[in-house]
Design a protein around this nucleic acid. Structure first.
Lengths: 336, 336
DNA sequence: CTGTTAGCGCTTTCAG
DNA sequence: CTGAAAGCGCTAACAG
């Protein structure tokens, strides 16, 4: 059994209050300070955070609910969040929703019961209902990557539609007119839908047609990217460029191109999304929409800590971070 | 503020003890049961887990300390662990060590302070020192993927050396004699070293030479796999086969081959490690050493829960799970 | 600066 | 089956 503050009391002859005060950074006589420090060392005392949390209603711990801990996007963001929180001496509790709304709701309840001081959510659900337990317990929440449909809460994200618009525009600037898109289904995913809309807007603004065959919508997976690219390449009137609207799809699509007889950018130009691991190492080096992952993680933490430390819950703010397009060699400039 | 057991007492006129008993699954009169359930619903009561943990010293929560949450290997394992724990109605707290021993040690202390019932560790450190806080608090620990050098603790893993030996033997069976290896450095990583040893043993048992140029040792990264494969392919006496000893390296190496003029398996045969996302979709389909990720996650949970629920701490056991080699088309059969 | 006292929300004897 | 009371380990007034 580990030792308690009471053992220190016995050992030092001081009162609980004095010791507690010392532990929390208060001022005590130098001689007592030495006494207490010695006792702590000898007893290997560690404060019981449960007891502490029970009385203070603060745990100096932040919870993160991620929609899929197995995905690189989530993993990368989690890493940055962890680093940011560590700097502020906050602990981090991560929960995986396994892409399942039921689990997601449970996770919120779990963290609320653990009395975390705040929660960062990478949500699956589009509705705010699952956040109710946090709201009732008055625990601040910040959304990351995806906002909700029915309530505007604090959120850190990019403007997916604009990012996609710019990406497709870049292809158009290079005189591509036959541009296809591979993206995830709107029913599944907020970001997929937004990016698709961006593609459509860019095409329409340039008065370019969007043949049905050029739109491949399904899910956020390597398999889908691979299959779709194979299909696109085998069309009797194939596109000259493809907008790959997320990381997994980008990976799969590049694999399909590399397996084929065709080469990028000679035969097909590519614009990808999310530079997670591949851009620096593979050929063709993809032009990609780059999300500021680190900044996203950091801003989410910053915003959350701010809400934690100021009980004026103010209006909720959306922080929209800007993306950039990293240059590669995957786009051919066609002649006008 | 959320409601407490006391509010239920007021509402029902029953005593704290009765309500507590009900909450913990004890028997109460049917009429009281109804009364309590109604009050719980109306007050949206949720037990305060801190208070509960403070008195019971049980939190029904397991902590996992992963060495790098951004890696697919960790992420995949975490996903399975989460699923297994959920089935047993245990909560899960994940901590990321950011590949840093200091953070790793902090994470252990953090979880101990959170009074988790047990901890699963995917360790960075090779020495057991960082686990001391858990030991002192009498919290059971199970290692996953990697054992420690100086103490034999409960551990779930594969036999890396044997797995590598078999993988390389498979190449040899196909009459390859010039076989290279790309692996991580022994100073960095236990598994890398073991796999390298397996490679060496297989080569020696077959009396095959190991030219210095054929051994590329550094780190567990896509970049390194890519660079190394480029180097190997450009040797004046290149290997006919390469053993890629981990997932990242496998990815990078395949990219390098696909970019080159050479083709697999015609010009170069490949044996990979860890089937995380690519095997089903890419060409060449790699022969790979497959770790039973799901079983690893599940066994680790099983073993831990067993230790949690039996205070006889018995001897520590190592569970060595078997690997298999999944067939692909990345190995050419040479003529004897 | 230090000590006394109460109490956070819950479980757990022990009587009844 | 139920209730009264003690206490888990700590912090937070308030006096001194």
């Amino acid at each position: 059994m580990s030792s308690t503050i009471r053992d220190i009391k016995e050992r030092t002859g001081l009162s609980l209050a004095t010791i507690s005060k010392f532990l929390n950074g208060g001022n005590v006589l130098p001689e007592n300070k030495i006494l207490i420090e010695k006792a702590i060392r000898e007893l290997r005392y560690e404060p019981n955070e449960l007891a502490r949390g029970l009385v203070t209603n603060k745990t100096r711990t932040v919870g993160v609910v991620a929609y899929d801990i197995g995905s690189l996007f989530n993993g990368t963001l989690l890493r940055y969040i962890g680093q940011a929180l560590r700097k502020e001496r906050y602990g981090l509790l991560i929960c995986d929703s396994q892409n399942d709304q039921t689990v997601e709701a449970e996770n919120i309840r779990f963290l609320v019961n653990k009395k975390v001081d705040g929660i960062i959510v990478l949500p699956i659900s589009r509705s705010a209902a699952f956040l109710k337990p946090a709201k009732e317990a008055d625990i601040p929440v910040v959304l990351l990557d995806r906002p909700l449909a029915d309530e505007s809460l604090d959120c850190v994200r990019i403007d997916n539609r604009k990012a996609a618009y710019r990406a497709v525009s870049r292809l158009i600037e290079n005189h591509h007119r036959k541009i296809a898109v591979i993206c995830s289904d709107e029913r599944n995913e907020y970001t997929g839908y937004e990016r698709y809309k961006g593609y459509v807007a860019a095409m329409e603004d340039a008065s370019l047609p969007i043949p049905r065959d050029y739109v491949r919508k399904r899910d956020h997976s390597i398999e889908f990217g691979y299959e779709s690219m194979k299909k696109l390449l085998s069309l009797h009137d194939p596109p000259t460029a493809v907008f790959l609207s997320n990381y997994e799809v980008s990976l799969g699509a590049v694999m399909a191109v590399n397996e084929s007889e065709l080469s990028c950018p000679r035969d097909i130009s590519l614009m990808g999304f999310d530079d997670l691991i591949l851009s620096h190492i593979m050929e063709p080096r993809l032009y990609m929409v780059v999300q500021p992952m680190q900044e996203m993680g950091e801003k989410a933490c910053e915003l959350l800590l701010q809400k934690i430390n100021s009980k004026d819950k103010a209006l909720s703010s959306e922080i929209i971070l800007s993306t950039r397009i990293s240059d590669g060699n995957s786009i051919a400039q066609l002649t006008a």
